Simulated scan of single mutants.
Amino acid sequence: MASLKASSLMFSSTSSSSCCRREIIRAAVHMPKLRHGGLLSLPNLTKTRGLVEELEMRSGYTNANTNSSPKYDTRVSDPTVIAKLYAIMEAIVDRVEMHKNIGEQRNNWNSLLLTSINAITLTAATMAGIAATGVGGGAALGSLKLSSTLLYLAASGMLLIMNKIQPSQLTEEQRNASRLFKQLHAEIHTMVCIGNPTMNDVKKAMEKSLPSGGLCIKRRDKRKNIMGEKINNGNGWDDKLEEEMREIVRVLKRKDEEDYLRLGEIFLKLNKVLAISGPLLTGLAAIGSAFVGSPGHGSWAVVLGVVGGALSTVVNAFEHGGQVGMVFEMYRSNAGFFKLMEESIESNLEEEEVERRENGEMFEMKVALQLGRSLLELKDLAASSSIKGEAMQQFASKLF
Results as ranks from 00 to 15, higher is better:
162 M>S: 11
125 A>W: 06
121 T>V: 07
177 A>I: 05
160 L>F: 13
106 R>P: 00
111 S>D: 06
86 Y>M: 10
181 F>M: 14
124 A>N: 02
166 Q>A: 15
127 M>P: 03
134 G>V: 05
154 A>L: 02
135 V>F: 12
119 A>D: 14
157 G>T: 12
108 N>I: 03
110 N>P: 00
163 N>K: 13
175 R>Q: 15
129 G>T: 12
162 M>L: 14
151 L>R: 05
91 A>T: 01
148 S>H: 01
85 L>H: 06
164 K>H: 13
118 N>A: 11
99 H>Y: 12
124 A>F: 03
162 M>G: 08
140 A>I: 14
115 T>R: 10
169 Q>R: 10
92 I>L: 10
132 A>D: 13
100 K>F: 12
157 G>S: 14
97 E>Y: 13
111 S>A: 10
140 A>F: 05
89 M>S: 11
90 E>G: 12
138 G>A: 07
162 M>E: 11
150 L>W: 07
112 L>W: 03
171 T>Q: 08
138 G>D: 06
105 Q>I: 07
108 N>A: 09
112 L>N: 09
144 L>P: 06
169 Q>L: 07
147 S>G: 12
117 I>G: 00
164 K>D: 08
89 M>V: 11
109 W>P: 01
159 L>Y: 06
107 N>G: 05
166 Q>V: 12
90 E>P: 02
160 L>D: 09
183 Q>P: 02
152 Y>S: 15
179 R>A: 15
107 N>E: 08
180 L>N: 14
132 A>T: 09
132 A>R: 10
99 H>I: 03
121 T>G: 06
144 L>K: 04
142 G>N: 12
146 L>F: 08
92 I>R: 00
179 R>P: 02
181 F>W: 04
104 E>N: 06
179 R>N: 14
93 V>R: 12
94 D>F: 11
137 G>L: 06
106 R>V: 04
97 E>R: 15
161 I>E: 04
141 L>F: 07
180 L>V: 13
102 I>F: 11
135 V>H: 04
135 V>G: 02
163 N>R: 11
144 L>M: 15
90 E>V: 12
143 S>M: 06
97 E>N: 13
160 L>W: 09
